[in-house]
Amino acid sequence: MKEKILKAIDKNSKISAADLAIMLGTTEEEIVRTIKEMEDETVICGYPTLINWDKVNCERVTALIEVKVTPQRGLGFDKIAERIYQFDEVQSVYLMSGGFDLTVIIEGSTMREVAKFVSEKLAPMEAILSTATHFVLKKYKEHGLPLVQTRHEERMLITP
């Protein structure tokens, strides 16, 4: 049941418990209880909204930063990752395989703000060997959903 619920709300967290119960063939109580359980277990960590900021008159800059670090004895990469993700500017942090160690995604209101964060906060950290900053020019798809959705119904209204 947990997996079924997660799959159903993955792309739309706004479905009501009553509707979910009907669609999954169970009771509303069961849905509410299971969701609560998963929230407590931090399987469900939050319900953010997917916003296309480009459509709002609100300047936003996103940057993806490749970070190379020296892992610390006994703590690996976790400690340094934690130091990084505590900053409010940081949207995501991933440990990577391959040419660098961490991907850090930063959001700021201007390019200058992001640059300032990288040069003043991120790069000087002791364990960090190097950073390479890439600015996002346009977002096409996030969380499995296209941000540029202009599709309309093209099927004929009645077909056999």
Partner: peptide, 26 residues
């Protein structure tokens, strides 16, 4: 002619109708 055809013509004149009449995947 297919009985569906006659109904199709009426529906098609109504541009703002919501259709639950389609026999193909969305």
């Amino acid at each position: 002619p297919s009985g569906i055809r006659k109904f199709f013509d009426i529906v098609n004149d109504m541009k703002d109708a919501i259709s639950l009449g389609v026999g193909e995947p969305d």
